[in-house]
């Protein structure tokens, strides 16, 4: 869309987390602004995994951090279990974070190198004075994530590999028994074999702890694997929201289609695509008018520059913000980009 709109939102009582018209702007030199996230709306139902996918600079991490209130929200609302949380501060905000936890991209740098793993995982409990049975709880969480508590507790982070550090970070976020965990690129720093271990572990933990996940990543294949619903973001806006299988078989937004073809497939018989998507992401300080994707879109017309597309439904649980989507009621102006949709 790179556009706005709320057609894809579900009733408030069906969702755990609801983000409406979220805008995050950062001040830049010369009185300019970085439009990191602009008018983003989405919701997450209980027990669901929402995947957010996009290139670097599309605002996906900022969105995650804004929900956690780690960056200031410029405008818009975040509702958690029916309570508005975007205006909380001080102790109220701290209390909220027991329910909302986050896992970061670099597992090694998010663990204090001077403290033992036992301390690192116990600290959230200490903060909330939940000392009764804390030791057993930490042991249980550590063994749930696949580490031997007796061995792991006295060690420090340098004695663990990247995958094991990510397990520790997951244990730390689970120890308070949160309702929602926001995973910001949890596997992009890991090897592919370890990535599979961590993705499987997240699925297991989601089941065991009854979690709702927001899974942010740039790898569409990874996001597709873990998600129940996927939101594609581009330059601070949402392009498309759909179920992962639908998004893969019938991408409606030209950007989603381009993302899909850019993924290198481990198959020598597939001729690598020779570039649908030219150019770079435009500057978020001066985003293009109308549809933000139009500068790189093969299907863009004058209408895309003049008028911002609004989210609309193009299928069962499939929403897109595009004037000329690859599926739906409007006939495509050209066929050049359609091969993507049929190549599956």
């Amino acid at each position: 869309m790179a556009g706005s709109g709320t057609a894809h939102l579900r009733p408030v009582d069906e969702v755990v987390l609801r983000v409406e018209d979220l805008t995050v702007e950062f001040p830049a030199s010369g009185g300019r602004k970085v439009h990191a996230v602009t008018g983003v709306s989405f919701d997450v139902a209980k027990g669901e995994t929402l995947g957010i996918v996009g290139e670097s600079g599309c605002g996906k991490s900022t969105t995650g951090k804004a929900i956690m209130r780690l960056v200031p929200i410029t405008s818009g609302t975040v509702t958690f279990n029916g309570n508005e949380i975007s205006s909380l501060s001080g102790n109220k905000l701290r209390e909220l974070r027991q329910e909302l936890q986050m896992i970061f991209q670099d597992p090694v740098s998010s663990i204090n190198p001077r403290r033992t793993i036992g301390d690192v995982v116990t600290e959230p409990l200490d903060i909330w004075n939940r000392t009764d049975g804390a030791e057993e709880l930490v042991d249980r969480v550590l063994s749930d994530v696949g580490l031997d508590p007796q061995v792991a507790r006295p060690k420090r982070r340098h004695e663990f590999s990247g995958g094991q550090c990510q397990r520790i970070c997951i244990a730390r976020s689970l120890v308070l028994d949160p309702e929602v965990i926001i995973c910001d690129e949890p596997v992009s720093a890991l090897d592919v074999s370890v990535q599979a271990q961590i993705l499987n572990l997240l699925e297991d933990m989601k089941e065991r702890y009854g979690l709702t996940l927001v899974f942010i990543a740039h790898d569409l294949a990874v996001v597709k694997n873990v998600s129940d619903r996927v939101a594609v973001m581009y330059l601070g806006k949402i392009c498309e929201i759909a179920s992962p299988d639908d998004l893969y078989y019938r991408p409606a937004h030209p950007y989603s289609a381009a993302l899909l073809t850019a993924i290198p497939l481990p198959d020598p018989d597939v001729v690598p695509n020779t570039g649908d998507l030219a150019g770079d992401l435009p500057s978020p300080m001066a985003p293009p008018s109308g549809c933000r994707f139009r500068t790189r879109c093969a299907r863009a017309t004058d209408r895309c520059a003049a008028e911002e597309p609004i989210v609309r439904q193009v299928g069962d649980d499939h929403f897109v913000a595009c004037h000329f989507p690859l599926v739906g009621e409007v006939a495509p102006p050209s066929t050049s980009a359609v091969r993507v949709a049929t190549s599956s």
């Binding site: 592919v192 074999s193 299988d245």
Partner: peptide
């Protein structure tokens, strides 16, 4: 161990 796009979502990966 590579997640494949053609897998249905929530396919368990062979790690």
């Amino acid at each position: 161990s590579i997640p494949k796009l053609e897998y249905r979502s929530h396919t368990r990966l062979a790690s």
